[in-house]
């Protein structure tokens, strides 16, 4: 165990109307056993004791599953470690004397609410447009009446592991939400339960995505690199195929 002295460069912005700015904080004597968010807690306690307003950031479960935390650390959403959210990032991955830049997830589709908190409800609206299987409560048949091939079930699971954090969008130079949308579409499109609505789902989710102001995908795979759940960019290829097929079917029907 060792303690670290760090310099933080943090984006501060009171609300959507405010002009934001980077402010500097010295984070002294931070245990390397602490998590990154606990480091921010310590800094915030000290800011409060000095009469200031704490740095606001989104967080909740602090175990990498709720998708709430959303910091860009030294330019990389969720930081440089692979396969984790910010709340799973630990201070032992930093060195004494490091300067750490902390910014919000950046995208036009994610307006800033305060400091490091952004509005990601655009992602919910994409799901509302078609990211579901329409089955009334109580209408289901026995779960084992519909066997699903294990590899398809696994592929659906891998896509369903998405936690909707939006790091894919924040990492993309075009602010594309294709990894998020393709993961949701693949989860449901792989499964036999999802087949009847596949065409409708694919078209309406993609159209909603465009309406929300997300950019296009230009195959740079930054999204895959930062995804805390390591969702594969292969889903994007699948979505492009499903979309092309669905568009043709729609045009000729």
């Amino acid at each position: 165990m060792a303690n670290l002295n760090l310099t933080l460069k943090v984006w501060r912005q009171l609300n959507a109307e405010d002009h934001g700015r980077i402010e500097t904080y010295e984070a002294r004597d931070i245990s390397d056993e602490a998590s990154f968010l606990e480091m921010l807690d310590i800094v915030n306690e000290r800011i409060l004791e000095d009469g200031g307003e704490p740095i606001h950031f989104d967080h909740d479960c602090r175990e990498g599953i709720c998708g709430m935390c959303s910091l860009t650390i030294n330019g990389i959403p969720h930081g440089k470690d692979r396969g984790i959210t910010v709340c799973q990032l630990h201070m032992r991955t930093f060195k004494d004397g490091d300067i750490i830049w902390i910014e919000p997830f950046r995208s036009r589709a994610f307006p800033i609410l305060r400091d490091l908190m952004v509005d990601r409800t655009a992602l919910d609206r994409i799901v509302a447009a078609g990211g579901y299987i329409d089955i009334r409560t109580g209408a289901a048949q026995d779960a084992n009446n519909l066997p699903v091939e294990k590899d398809k079930a696994e592929a659906a699971f891998e896509a369903a592991a998405c936690i909707g954090c939006g790091a894919c969008v924040a990492s993309c130079k075009n602010s594309s939400a294709m990894l998020f949308v393709s993961a949701k579409a693949a989860h449901l499109n792989y499964l036999p339960q999802g087949a009847p609505e596949k065409q409708k789902r694919t078209l309406s989710m993609v159209r909603q995505m465009d309406e929300e102001g997300f950019g296009n995908c230009t195959n740079q795979y930054e999204c895959e690199a930062v995804c805390p759940k390591e969702i594969s960019a292969d889903n994007i290829a699948k979505l492009n195929r499903d979309y092309a097929l669905s568009s043709i079917k729609e045009a000729v029907s």
Binding site: K150, A156, Q193
Partner: peptide, 22 residues
């Protein structure tokens, strides 16, 4: 039991065996 049926119908990817069943 109805919960498992409902969740499966919604596409919840429960673990499956090679025969495709839960």
């Amino acid at each position: 039991n109805a919960i498992i049926d409902q969740a499966t119908a919604q596409g919840v990817p429960f673990a499956r065996e090679y025969g495709g069943l839960l």
